[in-house]
C-alpha cells in the first residue's frame, strides 16, 4: 500500500535464477574434467586440501549468516510461548520450560491489551481483498490499452507515467492527506486507505511488458473471429499473463498487510485500522511499564502477523521473487 515510488528497473532480468543453473553445473564439471586430464599431477594433495578447506569455510560463512538471518524468527517463536515470569528471568532461556499458549488468546482479547487486534485483522483482510481486486481491474485495463491499442500520445503518456515513479511517495502524502481528509472527508473510512493506492504505475508497466510478449497475431485473429476486446482480454491475455497477475496480487496483499504510515495518518479510529498499526500500538501498550513489560504477548502478536506472510512466501516464492527483483519495492 505504501509504495516506494522510486524504482529503477534493471536492464536485465535478474529473477530467472533457474535459467543459468543447469548449464553452469555442466560447464563446471567439464572444466574440472578438462583440468584433471591436462595436468593431473599438478593437483597435489595440498591443493585438494585447500579446496576442501575453502568449501568448508564457505559453508561455515553461509551457515553463520543463515543463522543470523533466522535467529529473530526463532526468538519470536519461542518467546511467544513463554510465560512472562520466564521471559523476565535474569538470564533468558533458549527453550521454553513451559508452553503458555494462552499468550495467543490474550493477543485477541481487547480487554487485556486495550487494542482490538481481531477487528484490525479482519479490516486488513477486507482492505487487502478489495484493493487487490480493484487494482487488478484498473491495471489490466490500462496495461491492455498501452500494450495493444493505438491512440494519439500513447508513448508520451506512458513515459510521463514512468517518470512519476521517480518521485518519493512522501511527496504525495501531504496533498493526498489534504485531499482525503479535508476535501473528500474520508477520515475513518476504508476508502481512505484503498483508493489513493489503487493505481501503481509500476504494476501497469510490469503487466504491459508481459502483454507485449503475447504475439499480436492472436489479437488480430480474435478480431477476425469477431471477439470483443474485453472477451479477448479475459480469455487470452489474462490467462497468459497469469504469473504477473499473481505477482501483483501477492505484492498488493502484502502491501495492505504491512502498510503503516498512511492508515495511521488518515484513520485515527481503531474500527477502521489495519493490523500493523494495531501491532505497534499493542507493543507500546504492553511495554508502557519498563519494569514489567509483557514481551511474550507482543511476540505472539508478531508471530500472528508474520506467519501469514511466511506461508504466502513458501507457496508463492517464484511469483514474489519475480515481482520483487524488478522493482525493489516492498509491498
Amino acid at each position: 500500500m505504501e509504495e516506494d515510488r522510486i524504482e529503477i528497473i534493471p536492464a536485465e532480468e535478474s529473477s530467472e535464477e533457474v535459467r543459468a543453473e543447469a548449464p553452469a553445473e555442466a560447464d563446471e564439471i567439464k572444466a574440472e574434467k578438462g583440468m584433471k586430464a591436462k595436468d593431473i599431477r599438478a593437483v597435489s594433495r595440498k591443493q585438494l586440501a585447500l579446496k576442501i578447506l575453502g568449501q568448508a569455510g564457505l559453508y561455515l560463512f553461509l551457515t553463520v549468516m543463515a543463522f543470523i538471518v533466522l535467529f529473530p524468527f526463532y526468538w519470536m517463536l519461542i518467546s511467544s510461548v513463554k510465560s512472562v515470569e520466564e521471559y523476565n528471568l535474569l538470564t533468558p532461556t533458549v527453550w521454553p520450560k513451559q508452553f503458555v499458549w494462552s499468550n495467543y488468546a490474550k493477543v485477541f482479547s481487547a480487554s487485556e491489551t486495550g487494542i482490538d487486534l481481531g477487528r484490525m485483522f479482519l479490516n486488513t483482510v477486507y482492505v487487502g481483498i478489495v484493493s487487490t481486486i480493484l487494482s487488478l481491474i484498473v491495471t489490466v485495463l490500462s496495461a491492455f490499452a498501452f500494450a495493444r491499442l493505438e491512440f494519439r500520445g500513447k508513448n508520451i503518456l506512458f513515459a510521463a507515467l514512468l517518470a512519476t515513479m521517480m518521485i518519493p511517495g512522501e511527496l504525495f502524502t501531504i496533498t493526498n492527506f489534504i485531499t482525503v481528509v479535508n476535501v473528500l472527508d474520508w477520515r475513518n473510512t476504508f476508502a481512505a486507505i484503498i483508493v489513493p493506492f489503487l493505481v501503481s504505475v509500476f504494476y501497469i508497466y510490469l503487466l504491459r511488458q508481459n502483454f507485449l510478449q503475447i504475439p499480436n497475431e492472436l489479437y488480430l485473429a480474435a478480431k477476425v473471429d469477431g471477439t470483443s476486446d474485453l472477451k479477448y482480454l479475459w480469455k487470452v491475455m489474462i490467462p497468459l499473463a497469469a504469473p504477473t497477475l499473481i505477482s501483483i496480487t501477492i505484492l498488493k496483499m502484502m502491501g495492505a498487510w504491512n502498510s503503516y504510515i498512511w492508515p495511521r495518518l488518515v484513520n485515527p479510529n481503531d474500527s477502521y485500522q489495519l493490523i500493523t498499526v494495531g501491532l505497534r500500538d499493542l507493543a507500546s501498550a504492553l511495554s508502557s511499564n519498563p519494569a514489567n513489560p509483557n514481551f511474550p504477548v507482543q511476540m505472539a502478536a508478531v508471530v500472528l502477523v508474520t506467519i501469514p506472510l511466511l506461508l504466502v512466501f513458501i507457496f508463492f516464492r517464484k511469483y514474489i521473487m519475480h515481482g520483487v527483483s524488478r522493482s525493489g519495492i516492498k509491498g
Binding site: V69, S79, M254, T276, L279, T306, L310
Partner: peptide, 15 residues
C-alpha cells in the same frame, strides 16, 4: 536469505 524480505518491518522491529 530471502525470508527477511517477506516480513513486516514493524513486527520484526519489535523482535
Amino acid at each position: 536469505f530471502f525470508l527477511p524480505y517477506v516480513t513486516n518491518a514493524i513486527a520484526i522491529g519489535m523482535v
